[in-house]
């Protein structure tokens, strides 16, 4: 799993900078931030969107594509903030790489949100056809 996240992030933003932080990114930050924000938070938000807002509550006010997009952007925002927060928590040497990593995390969280949506939307009462 560590290698999967390492592959994903380094594919977009290259090797960690400064290089001294490589072990910290590869063994701690990539898997932790990836696991929590890409998988866990994204999954929870997808479930909230399809099965709380558009299933349990049945208000029908959130079934449009732009509601879905709003959720996706909120998820990306959380992913961005969480990546920076986690890097600071681990006292990573300040570098623009932290922000590139946060962008990459936001991008992948949006991608995962889209994939989870395709996988999970079909049993939603109101939004089985959102975004399409």
């Amino acid at each position: 799993m560590k290698n999967v996240f390492r592959f994903l992030y380094e594919l977009l933003i290259g090797k960690p900078e400064p290089p001294m932080e490589t072990p910290l990114y590869r063994s701690e930050i990539f898997p932790d931030v990836g696991g929590v924000s890409l998988l866990l938070i994204t999954l929870v938000l997808v479930l909230v969107y399809y099965y709380v807002l558009n299933h349990v509550m049945r208000t029908a006010r959130f079934s449009h594509w732009y509601h879905w997009l709003g959720m996706l952007l909120i998820n990306a925002g959380i992913a961005f903030g969480y990546a920076i927060y986690y890097c600071r928590l681990h006292e990573v040497t300040p570098d623009s790489y932290v922000y590139w990593f946060a962008f990459a995390n936001a991008f992948y969280s949006a991608l995962f949100f889209f994939l989870f949506s395709l996988l999970l939307k079909w049993r939603s009462y109101n939004a089985a056809r959102t975004p399409f």
Binding site: L45, Y85, Y86, L89
Partner: peptide, 24 residues
């Protein structure tokens, strides 16, 4: 919804806190 999202963020942050910190 906003409060919910904020709650998730706080929860995950707490989760991260309890993890083993990397010794500098």
């Amino acid at each position: 919804l906003f409060v919910f999202c904020l709650g998730i963020l706080v929860c995950t942050a707490c989760g991260a806190d309890s993890e083993q910190p990397v010794s500098a």
